[in-house]
Design a protein around this nucleic acid. Sequence first.
DNA 1: ACAATATATTCCAATATGGGAATATGTCAA
DNA 2: TTGACATATTCCCATATTGGAATATATTGT
Lengths: 111, 111
Amino acid sequence: MARTRTTYDAFNAIAEPKRRALIETLAIQELSVNEIVKIMRWNQPMVSKHLGVLKQVGLVSERKDGRYRVYKVNAAELKPIHDWVAQFDQLWVNRLDHLEDYLDKIQRGEG
Amino acid sequence: MARTRTTYDAFNAIAEPKRRALIETLAIQELSVNEIVKIMRWNQPMVSKHLGVLKQVGLVSERKDGRYRVYKVNAAELKPIHDWVAQFDQLWVNRLDHLEDYLDKIQRGEG
DNA sequence: ACAATATATTCCAATATGGGAATATGTCAA
DNA sequence: TTGACATATTCCCATATTGGAATATATTGT
């Protein structure tokens, strides 16, 4: 068997750094493909391909506007990731608390 | 070029569903490899390989205990993912609010 | 030292990938 | 209709992957 497909779910789609950058950019505003090409400084097929992956998992959606295709983020598709990670966040928040306690202790000269 | 390596960062490491399952299991308690083998019902090399990837990105750490190697989750390595996703969570929380408004409206007979 | 146990590593095959280059498709404007 | 523009798709390569099977490497108890 091979690796899980990038189009399998949002987890796989956002593993690629370029696709995260794309999402960050599109979160600010909707953009056409060529606008993305200019902003990201990638070639046009690369932009289209990465958008294609994001579209397949529903992370972006596309609206036709004449010759243009305007893409926007569908952030709700990030919720499964949010929820999956959130179930563990206490595990590091607590550690951070302990670190703060420790630093306070040092501060008070009890270190 | 090929796909981003699974060992490149936590994003890539957790894209694989089996590795997420592994993290979920280890979050409950530390476990030796063979304990994981029994719980997950995967063969032993598969467990070791997936643990290897998670270890390389720091998502799990390993403690030697005689013949055993006890693995535990290092959830702090999930924080970059948490933070990346969190910057977008308003985008779906707001939508949810709007949905609730909409449902309220229907409830009041204004739909 | 030896047998048994625990774990890691290697070798293999099939497969999907990201990027580049070229090309195809679609759509407007004159 | 034609040319210009906007976008998508195809073909290619090099590479890393997952899983299975087999094997290697600890480490322990006797």
